[in-house]
């Protein structure tokens, strides 16, 4: 048995968290590669349907940040 690897879909605000994730890269901060980022214009754009759809498509977690 391999260890459980969560699959995480994240929705990041273009103006803050997306930029922060960019800076994590600039700072070469290593983190696990389980995250797939979808850029949204603002967390105001976030709709419950996006959560549900990500979960139904097999994501173990959804992360919204903004």
């Amino acid at each position: 048995m391999t260890e459980f690897e969560p699959k995480i879909v994240s929705f990041l605000c273009n103006w803050c968290s997306y930029g922060a994730a960019d800076l994590a890269g600039v700072g070469r901060m290593e983190y696990p590669s389980n995250i797939r980022v979808i850029r949204i214009p603002c967390t105001g754009r976030m709709s419950p349907k996006f959560f549900l759809s990500a979960l139904s498509e097999g994501a173990d977690a959804v992360w919204v940040s903004g």
Binding site: D22, L23, A24, G25, V26, R28, E30, Y31, R36, V37
Partner: peptide
């Protein structure tokens, strides 16, 4: 597709997973 800041720069020790990402 942001494969540098969100990928190669932060998953340096797991190149295969980074390629997959």
């Amino acid at each position: 597709a942001n494969i540098r800041n969100h990928d190669s720069w932060v998953h340096k020790s797991t190149p295969e997973l980074a390629t997959q990402k």
